[in-house]
């Protein structure tokens, strides 16, 4: 076996399937997960819809506050009609579902603009933030986790443990606010307070605007991934096949990444999937602090304004994101580990 030979990642798991069998197993897994995903999203949409209607108040109360009391009866009747207040719940849900299925997502009660356009503007921001935070989190978590486990008690391990304590113990809103205040007061620097620039319109400004919020989010993610990676690597590092690989004279790099890390990767993948799901919720706070016009901020404003069409659509998108991430992780399990694929 050379350095470039087949990875030992799944070697202990046993037999290998033919290419056709492997593809069939994967396809079955994807189809099963897709079906359950559709059902889950449908269930979430019903729950969100009902919960919103159980909250006290409505779009009119939210829009006018106590000034609602100044309206005449005729004005109230006209506005109730406009906001759809008093329509049967089934009818409201049917209208919304129809809007979702036809792709227009309805019209915002607050701004009277298309929900699809609001979501279309905000979604790429949150998506980019989530990806950047995940990549940074993986970088922090995997590097500190692997090297910490290989050199327990040394400087890199102690540093990693320190980062993990901060990442897990300090809430992201504290880290974010501290970071914003520090950069602005010391360096007069707060790039995300400028109009958001997309990656295509101004890549350099975009990187600056995304980097610090992503860093804020990544500390928590990185801490969780680091702990999992460290524990998993510590477990693998004493296995016979690792000793064999070393005994065969493979390079340290090859042993570390191909034989140790890949075999320790399944728990890391699970943790990464879970963290990516929570990350979607974390963006809500970080987008507020860093002034990013993403889905999280849109959701908060819409909840405050009882803008039901927007809240329903954004929540469903978050739920769909969570479900898709879980599905991708499950499919990756199957792709990586033949024991799962062949179950």
């Amino acid at each position: 076996m050379t350095d470039d030979g087949p990875a030992g990642a799944v070697a202990p798991a046993g037999r290998r399937l033919s290419g056709e069998g492997r593809a069939r197993g994967l396809l079955f897994e994807v189809a099963r997960r897709l079906a359950s995903m559709v059902l889950t999203i449908f269930g979430v949409s019903i729950i969100v819809f009902l919960v919103l209607r159980l909250l006290p108040g409505n779009a009119l109360t939210s829009a006018l506050g106590v000034s609602e009391g100044l309206l005449t009866h005729a004005q109230l009747v006209a506005l109730d009609h406009y906001y759809g207040i008093g329509e049967p719940v089934i009818q409201q849900y049917g209208s919304w579902l129809h809007a979702i299925l036809t792709g227009n997502l309805g019209v915002s009660l607050q701004s009277r603009t298309s929900v699809a356009s609001l979501v279309g503007t905000a979604l790429p921001v949150t998506f980019e933030l989530a990806i950047a935070a995940m990549l940074l989190g993986l970088l922090i978590g995997v590097l500190f986790g692997v090297f910490g486990a290989l050199r327990p008690g040394r400087a890199v391990d102690v540093t990693g443990q320190g980062v993990s304590v901060i990442g897990l113990g300090v809430p992201s809103f504290v880290i974010g606010t501290g970071l914003v205040t520090l950069l602005a007061s010391v360096f007069q620097y707060f790039p995300s307070s400028e109009t958001f620039a997309s990656l295509t319109s101004d890549p350099w400004l975009n990187i600056q605007q995304i980097f610090f919020p992503a860093l804020t989010l990544s500390l928590g993610i990185g801490a969780a991934i680091m702990r999992t990676t460290r524990a998993s690597v510590l477990e693998v590092v004493g296995q016979n096949y690792v000793r064999t690989a070393r005994g065969k004279g493979l390079s340290r790099h090859s042993v570390t990444w191909k034989h140790i890390f890949l075999n320790a990767f399944i728990p890391v993948l699970t943790m990464s999937g879970i963290q990516l799901g929570y990350l979607l919720g974390g963006t809500v706070i970080v987008e507020q602090i860093f002034v990013l016009p993403g889905l999280g901020r849109l959701l908060v404003e819409s909840i405050n304004g009882r803008d039901f069409p927007v809240v329903q659509s954004v929540t469903t998108i978050f739920a769909a994101g969570f479900v898709v991430v879980n599905m991708v992780v499950d499919v990756l399990y199957a792709a990586i580990d033949p024991r799962i694929r062949n179950r």
Binding site: T177, V180, T181, L183, A184, S185, Q188, Y189, F190, P191, S193, E194, T195, Q288, I289, F290, V291, R297, V300
Partner: peptide, 21 residues
């Protein structure tokens, strides 16, 4: 003139210090 929403007052203060507001 741009009327911009910056959701927290602390962030507004930071934006003033960064001269973006």
């Amino acid at each position: 003139v741009k009327i911009e929403a910056i959701p927290t007052e602390q962030s507004i203060a930071s934006a003033i210090e960064a001269n973006t507001v």
